[in-house]
Design a protein around this nucleic acid. Structure first.
Lengths: 178, 178
DNA sequence: CCCTACGTTCAAAATGTTTTGAATGAACTG
DNA sequence: CAGTTCATTCAAAACATTTTGAACGTAGGG
């Protein structure tokens, strides 16, 4: 294959590995995803092993994760007994999967814990010594800031997730280029 | 100290540890930050060791990182020879530090690499076999999607970073609560 | 100057994560 | 049903990260 194609493939795959790492997934997941994304045909487990120089076991496990996150799908190739995979190529869908199920839960838990802390502090106020009351009020201030941060994050997430297919990537490209 | 205060302190500190981990920092950094954030007085290295049950060396190194990221500052306490630290309590500032210097650079690098790939593919087109040309066009499609994603990320970052002190956390709190 | 109180460094140890490959099992085929 | 071809599992090994503490450096006080 022409060297340019190989080079582009490599840098894209390793870039996606990096991106995956950034989002708290394993590098390998990202590289598998990238390899599938740049393959016009679905790929089998063995082809993925060969391409990425990774053991079969690892590919098997990581592919399961990719499927769990809706980033890849099994594909049935007629006349073949093996499993074939293709990437979910709708980025928007992938992002919604990840943000919607993982990040949103994290934010909600955080908000819940912070809310509880505030309640506890307010409830305990009358049992505290004057010195402790000062500290409690200090805590309340700082925790209110954290709360505001997470509420902001929640709003941002909802903005991205809420719009059905809204944020139109193609449109973004056009805006930037012009 | 009253048990409620201790409990709130613990959950906040460990929550910030979690958050730090999420952003690719070490847990310990987050916990140090949390401990400082919930202390009305600046704390010395040794106090931080004691509170978090962590070695002096570790605190020293992690505090340097916290300073590098603008999340904590040294404070001079008169009559004291030791270093004291306090948290940068303006969350907005902290977020801008992190997003501005780290995330933004990542996004820019990614955009640069993707742009290069597109150029390379276009330049090589006339040297490719018909079969390779089909593949090159396929790559261009997929890479354009990735580009759009990163351009979206860049816009989002700029929206957050661009506004001077704009996104007003207190206002967010009010909106959410009402 | 020397002594003390501190902060920093860094190599080794502890801990955590990822990868591997042999064992297992499931599904098809003749 | 026996043989083959695959995917999966999981314990052990390879690898990476974090933590530790002893050694070192530095500044102030006497």
């Amino acid at each position: 294959m022409h060297e340019t194609l190989t080079a582009v493939n490599n840098s894209t795959v390793s870039g996606l590995g990096r991106l995956a790492g950034f989002f708290g997934f394993s590098d390998v997941m990202g590289r598998l995803y990238g390899t599938l994304l740049l393959s016009p045909e679905p790929l089998s487990l063995d082809e993925l092993c060969d391409t990425l120089r990774i053991s079969k076991g690892s590919v098997s496990m990581n592919m399961r994760d990719l499927e769990r996150w809706g980033m890849a799908k099994e594909v049935w190739v007629r006349g073949e007994r093996r499993k074939f995979y293709k990437a979910e190529s709708d980025m928007w869908q992938v992002i919604r999967n990840v943000l919607g199920s993982r990040e949103q839960r994290e934010v909600q838990v955080a908000l819940h814990v912070l809310g509880e802390s505030i309640e506890k502090l307010q409830a305990a106020e009358c049992q505290l010594s004057p010195e402790e009351q000062r500290l409690a009020r200090f805590y309340l201030d700082r925790i209110a800031d954290l709360q505001a941060f997470f509420q902001f994050a929640q709003l941002a997430l909802q903005a991205v997730l809420g719009s059905e297919t809204a944020i139109d990537f193609e449109a973004v490209t056009r805006i930037e280029i012009e």
